[in-house]
Structures are given as C-alpha cells and as structure tokens.
Computed example of a mutant assay.
Amino acid sequence: MTRRKRSLSGEERTLWAIVARTVAPLRPEDMMAEPPAPPVAEAPVMSAPSKGAGASANAGKLGKAVPPPPPPLHPIERRTLTRVARGTIEIDGRIDLHGLTQLDAHDRLHGFLRDAQSRGSKLVIVITGKGKVGGDDPYGMNERGVLRRRVPQWLAEPGLRNIVIGFEEAHRSHGGGGALYVRIRKKRTLHKVGEP
C-alpha cells in the first residue's frame, strides 16, 4: 500500500523557505548559485515641458539603487547551546510573551530585542509558551500555540536581521519547545569625524 504525499500549505512553504535560507551547506562547493538579481532599470529622462507647464518630478532622475540584502541568519552552534544549558554562558535577558495577542507580542518582541542590543546583550531567551492541544474549537478561531509558531517567523524578518544573528529552541531546563535562545548582533557604532 503506497501513501499519497500531501503538498505543503502556503504557510508551510513560507516557513520552509525561511528555514532553508538559514542552513549552511556541508560542502560549500556543492552550493547552488542564487539567480542573479534583475538589473535595475533606469528611469527615462523626460524632455522639457512646454511653456506654462511645471517641471516633471521624474525629470532627470535615475532608477533607485537596490539596498544591500540583510545579513543572513546563522544557527547557534551546538557547543554554544551545550554551554548555555550548563550555565557556563550567561543569558543576558528574557521576555515572556505568553498570554499576549499577536500584535502586542510582536511589538514587545521588537522593543525587547532593540533594547537588548543597545545594552550589549549577546544571548536572550524569548518565552512563547507551548500552547495547548485540543479543545472544543473546531474552526480554529481560538488557535493555541500561535506565538510558538509565529515568533520564529518574526525573528527571521529582514527588519530584525541587524539585531538577530540566529535562534534555536531552548534546552528543557529553559523551557524547551516553549522558548527560544536568540543571539544578538553587536550594535554598530558610528564614529564622529576626527575620531579613530
């Protein structure tokens, strides 16, 4: 008897794409090259308008430069995870998101991570809760465990890549599947002119 393969939902495909971008190949020489970015088209130069008409806002402008892509996420090394679980690497902060709505949790997470970076934190814990299985909600209107699923997606957003280096599920002693270790990127400081 053969099993029919089920296809991934749109949400599952999105999550897989996020995870797949964070994986480093075992053999870099086998890595597939990413397709080249499409060339940036230059805006056409408009001719001068006739008398009485105002100058065109687009006159003489070239196409906008594409900003550099955000830095990629990196998984936390196994050795580091072991040292965190044993307590030899200190956890610099924690935030507990359970019981919050998605909107509140998203806002608090972003603020907490920005603050952690400005304080010079290297590793923090984000507690999402594990969610509850079951219940009498056949239509999924009161979905449980939504933060456990959504927080990894938020951490992988391009807007947080200048703060988040990577993240992994926490050890059982720190909440297991209901919490994440998050490595924080060192904040870049801008030097004033004349300073070394």
Score class of each variant (00 low, 15 high):
D115C: 01
G87L: 01
R108G: 08
G111A: 09
G131L: 05
V126Q: 13
V151F: 05
E157A: 06
F112W: 08
V146I: 13
A85S: 07
K122C: 12
G129A: 02
R144S: 06
R94D: 06
N142A: 09
T101L: 12
Q117C: 06
L81K: 09
L109N: 08
K132H: 08
L81S: 08
R83I: 08
I95S: 07
L81I: 09
G129D: 11
S118M: 09
Q153R: 07
T128C: 15
G129E: 10
R119D: 10
L113V: 00
D104Q: 15
G93I: 06
M141K: 13
A85L: 02
L97V: 01
R119A: 13
D107V: 01
I95Y: 05
L155I: 02
M141V: 00
T82P: 12
L97E: 02
D136E: 07
K130Q: 12
G93Y: 11
R150A: 05
L73H: 11
L109I: 14
H106S: 10
D92V: 06
G99C: 13
R86Y: 12
D136H: 02
K130H: 13
T82A: 06
I91T: 02
G140A: 13
G93N: 11
R79F: 14
G145S: 14
L123N: 05
E77R: 00
R149F: 08
A85D: 07
H98P: 04
D115Y: 06
D104N: 14
T80E: 15
E157L: 04
I91L: 04
Q102W: 13
L113T: 02
G111E: 00
L100M: 15
P152C: 11
